[in-house]
């Protein structure tokens, strides 16, 4: 693959992480445990969908003759490049928060590195997104502490959530040819450095929450390359149904 194709894939991965997680979070609208949480979750969802829009617009330009909506609504499961973590179902609120925290703690250092990217568009989108994600991480971290250090039930639920999600964290830091090429070109992030910051932040919050960090065992991977869990298909079916049934619909 050429560097141009690597860049397209790299940008699509950034876009799809934001788009899929944004769509997941939007499923809480109308169902969140409290009005305040519903608003907060919807805010994060909209932040992420806005970021996805910026990334997809850039990806569409790089591909030539595509547009962001087409990329969002007319690609199939195998063409999505998000990590497996973000497509996992919402579960209970502890699961949603744990997924958010594990992702935010990765997303922020990633974006902060990309803000210094040699590609000016990547740098610009990353810098703007990092402000939003800084808040996401603060909020999800505060919730982790309250779940871990809260009641017996909240603690039991968050421990269960972390155990179930942990096998999806390895993929966040596993590079492939695309990551290597983009790092070499000065465009992409150094995933080892991102992992170090992620790890430090996770340890800090877990310590305050009284949570034990699970052992790194066998890790799931494949999402970045298009191999997804069954959950993504259902998510896309709901997200894409309208524009696919009515391709020229305007709203």
């Amino acid at each position: 693959m050429s560097d141009d194709q690597h860049l397209q894939t790299y940008v699509l991965r950034l876009a799809d992480n934001a788009l899929v997680l944004g769509q997941r979070l939007s499923e809480w609208v109308g169902h969140a445990p409290a009005l305040e949480e519903e608003m907060a979750t919807a805010n994060v969802s909209l932040d992420l969908i806005g970021q996805a829009k910026s990334w997809l617009e850039y990806a569409a330009e790089l591909r030539g003759g595509d547009d962001a909506d087409r990329l969002a609504f007319h690609r199939d499961v195998l063409d999505f490049h998000n990590t497996l973590l973000v497509e996992q179902p919402n579960g209970d609120y502890a699961m949603t928060i744990a997924r958010q925290f594990l992702f935010d703690a990765f997303h922020l250092p990633l974006l902060e590195q990309l803000a210094g990217s040699a590609d000016p568009r990547v740098a610009e989108i990353a810098a703007k997104s990092a402000k939003e994600v800084g808040y996401h991480l603060r909020r999800s971290g505060e919730w982790m502490i309250r779940f871990g250090d809260g009641t017996d039930e909240s603690r039991r639920r968050v421990i269960d959530a972390v155990e179930r999600l942990w096998p999806f964290t390895g993929e966040l830091f596993t590079g492939d040819a695309v990551d290597e090429a983009m790092l070499a070109a000065g465009v992409g992030a150094d995933l080892a450095a991102v992992r170090e910051r992620w790890s430090g932040h996770v340890d800090e919050v877990f310590a305050e929450a009284g949570l034990e960090r699970p052992e790194d065992g066998w890790m799931q991977s494949g999402g970045k390359q298009g191999h997804h869990s069954e959950h993504l298909g259902y998510l896309l079916a709901e997200m894409q149904q309208l524009p696919r049934a009515y391709p020229d619909a305007r709203w």
Binding site: A34, L35, E36, M39, A40, N43, R138, E142
Partner: peptide, 18 residues
């Protein structure tokens, strides 16, 4: 509504400064 002061500031941000 919020569980404590820190969360109250965050909830206020999310509900009233959108």
């Amino acid at each position: 509504h919020a569980a404590d002061a820190t969360m109250a500031v965050e909830n206020a941000r999310d509900v009233y400064t959108r």
